[in-house]
Design a protein around this nucleic acid. Structure first.
Lengths: 181, 181
DNA sequence: ATCTTCATGTAATAAGTTACATGATTAA
DNA sequence: TTAATCATGTAACTTATTACATGAAGAT
């Protein structure tokens, strides 16, 4: 038996709470784990099929009027696989891809105002992310405590990044002022 | 002309400072941008070929004894492409994949000691990353100020994550103690 | 009427890792 | 002599995104 991708396990984790359609799973992801584990339809639907073939979820046709609809629920085997993953101590994926930071890293060849633009773009990005996280705060509060704690972690991360950007902006402007004297 | 991947641009950025072999580029990445932009040989060598075909780098055979060796230097077109990217204001990639956090998010079905194990594993991971960043601190200081500032950003991020983990551990243990009374 | 949301799916493509193969040079 | 480092590369695979196609139901 092939081992599951973390994305498949995320689906199992969401289905642990309640049965959902692929569409609902996508919406749930976007309202919860998206900021540290995104997933697209192009992954979710094939992944659900694989999970069904592996017997970890059960698919049930449940049309709403003339609109076809498939609800997935987790099976006992699925619950076991979820638990096995959660309690497995082996190494977990941790990856960061930050192109704005990459630009900042190479900023030595830029003029101060161009560097400033790089940092401001990065700050804006984090501010948008922060706003997106704040927008789902109420939903997270209603879910269990772990969802809310996870969200607060994300909020803190974005705030750290924003504060760092502000520091860099300040230092850059101070440096530019000094050169002008 | 096809647009470049951020990884290709990272190579250009590194070559801006000085010419390097593919092997040296990999080593440079591992000692600088790796924590927010990793790259493997499987990407670097083909990418260098593409950059050469596009005329953005120039390859020169420069064997050391009987060991073949190809040094890449950035061309004027390459410098222009680098600059264009650095000053381009359009959206940049920002992605986080944190499987440990995913586990934490789903921890409601775990027993307190199992949840504790999840957080501790996450903390250990960040502590290792922090140590890796601290180990390259001297190199970053010797490079330009942006490299060092970028590193400090990474260090701060890891410290934030570690502090958060410690908070969660404390809260969990406090909660467990309360239940026992 | 028409726009949004609900709903499912695939094909093409992109981006990247892992494992492997090969072989020279240098340090212990 | 043996291990580490320098050096280059590819094939197979994995993971994921984007764009597209399709169509029903509900809201305005």
């Amino acid at each position: 038996m092939e081992s599951l991708t973390p994305t498949a396990r995320a689906l199992l984790g969401l289905l642990h709470n309640r049965a959902r359609t692929g569409y609902e799973l996508k919406a749930s992801i976007d309202k919860s784990v998206r900021f540290f584990w995104a997933a697209s339809y192009g992954q979710i639907y094939p992944e659900l099929k694989r999970l069904e073939e592996a017997g970890l979820v059960r698919a049930t046709d449940d049309p709403r009027g003339g609109r076809r609809r498939t609800v997935y629920e987790i099976t006992a085997d699925g619950e076991a696989a979820l638990r096995a993953w959660l309690t497995d101590e082996s190494a977990t994926t941790f990856e960061l891809r930050d192109e704005a930071l990459l630009k900042f890293f190479f900023a030595s060849s830029l003029k101060p105002d161009e560097t400033l633009a790089v940092i401001r773009a990065k700050r804006r990005q984090h501010e948008e992310r922060l706003a997106a996280l704040r927008a789902i705060e109420d939903d997270a509060k209603e879910a269990d405590g772990f969802a809310y704690r996870t969200l607060k972690y994300g909020i803190g991360l974005q705030e750290y990044a924003i504060a760092w950007c502000r520091d860099q902006e300040r230092e850059l402007q101070a440096g530019a002022a000094e050169t002008q004297r």
